[in-house]
Design a protein around this nucleic acid. Sequence first.
DNA 1: TGACAGTACGACCGATCGTGCTATGTTGTC
DNA 2: GACAACATAGCACGATCGGTCGTACTGTCA
Lengths: 217, 217
Amino acid sequence: MTSDTTSQVRPRPRQRRADGERTRRAILSRAASLATVDGLEGLSIGNLAAATGISKSGLYAHFGSKEELQLATVEEAERILKEEVVQPALAAAPGLGQLAAACEAFFSYVERRVFPGGCFFAATSLEMGARPGPVRDRLATVQSDFTALLRSFAGTAIKQHELAAHEDPDRLAFELHAILLGADTKFVLHDDPAVMSLAREVISHRLGLDTIADAPT
Amino acid sequence: MTSDTTSQVRPRPRQRRADGERTRRAILSRAASLATVDGLEGLSIGNLAAATGISKSGLYAHFGSKEELQLATVEEAERILKEEVVQPALAAAPGLGQLAAACEAFFSYVERRVFPGGCFFAATSLEMGARPGPVRDRLATVQSDFTALLRSFAGTAIKQHELAAHEDPDRLAFELHAILLGADTKFVLHDDPAVMSLAREVISHRLGLDTIADAPT
DNA sequence: TGACAGTACGACCGATCGTGCTATGTTGTC
DNA sequence: GACAACATAGCACGATCGGTCGTACTGTCA
C-alpha cells in the first residue's frame, strides 16, 4: 500500500540469469519430490539445501520465504502434472477417449513413481486442507481445474452418445476423481501394485469400456 | 535383540493411576484433533503441551517418545472412528443397509467436524504413506480393516440379492471407499458442504437405492 | 501409616528451524 | 574492460524442535 505511486508497476523487477534459472529448476525438482514424502510443511530449508548441495542462504536468494518456496513447488508440481496427465489426455480422441486417457495417464504417473510419495496433489492437499493461505488456495485451484477438465470430457462424451444421456458430468467427474485418489492412497499406503489393476477395472466398467467384451450381442 | 531372554515378555509393565488415565485421555483427544490440522509429523510436543496446559516433561511421563505419542494418537482416532462410523453401520440391517449406513455415518462424521481437518485417516494416511514405520503400518491396517468391513457388507448384500450377483465385493468396497475419501478431500479443501450431497447421490445411485423412485414400474 | 510407583514440573541440552546481513564470486551488457 | 546485477556462501540470530535431567507431589496398596 505504500508504493505504487508511479502506477507503472514492475511486478517482476527480478531478472534471472541463465545459471540461476538452472539451479532454481533443480531446487524445485527436488522440492517437489521431497514434499510428497515430508509434506509441504515438513519440507525444510535445511533439508532441501542439503539435498541439492546448495547453502541455505543460497536457497533464500531464489525464494524470499518458505511460503514462496512452497508456492513455487506447487507450481512446479502443477507443470509436471500437466505434462504427465493432462497433455496425454488432451491428445486422445475427444470425449470418452479423453476420459479414459486421463485416468490411464494418472495411474501410470503414480505407478512410475514420478513422485516418490504418489500423486503430489493427493499427498499435499489433505495436509494443507486445514491450513488457510495462498498455498492451500493454489492446491484447491489445481484440483478444481482437474475436476473441471474431467467434467468437460464427460460432457463431450455424452454429447457424442458415448455415454448415456442420463449421466451427470458433474457426478461422473467426481466419481472418477475419487477413484484416482483412492487408487493413489491405497497404492502408497500399502505398496500394493495390485490396487492399480482393480482401479483400472473400476474405471473401465464405469465408462462402459468393457461392454464389448462382456456383451457380445 | 538384547532382552526377551525370558520370552515371557511383559509388554505392559506400566500401570496407570486414575488421574493419569484422565489426563492421558485429554491429551490424546487434543492430539488427534491437532494431527488432522498439523499432520502426525507436524504434531509437536511443545504445541501439544501448550494446547493441553501440561508441561512438555509432563507429556513425557505418558509417552516415552514422539513415535509412541503418534501411535497412541492413531489408536485414539481409531476408537473414535469405530464409535462414529463402524458401530452405526453394524447396527443397521445386515447387507445393503449396513453399506448405506456406513457411508452415511462417514459423511456425517466429516460434516460434523468430529476432527477439524476432516477424516483423521484420510488426512494422515497420505502423509505417512512414504514414511515406513509402525505408525504407517497401523494406519494401513486401519484402512485395510475398514475396506474389509465394506467388503463383507457387500458380500452379504449380494448373498441376500440386494445387489446384483455379478457385483464384485472387492471392487465395490474399493469404489465406495474411494468415494468417501474423495468427498472428504473436496470437503476440507474447498470448505464446500455441497460436495456431500453430490457424494450421497453417487452412493445412492451406486447401491441402487434410488431405483424405487426412478423406476416406478 | 509407610513405601513406592505414577504423575507432573521447570530447567536445560544439542540440533534444527526459518530468516536475515554481508561479502565475494560470476555473468551479461555497454 | 568497467560496471551493475545476479548468484552463492558464510555467519549469526532467536525460536522451536525432540528429549533428558533432578525433584517434588500424590494415589494406591501392603
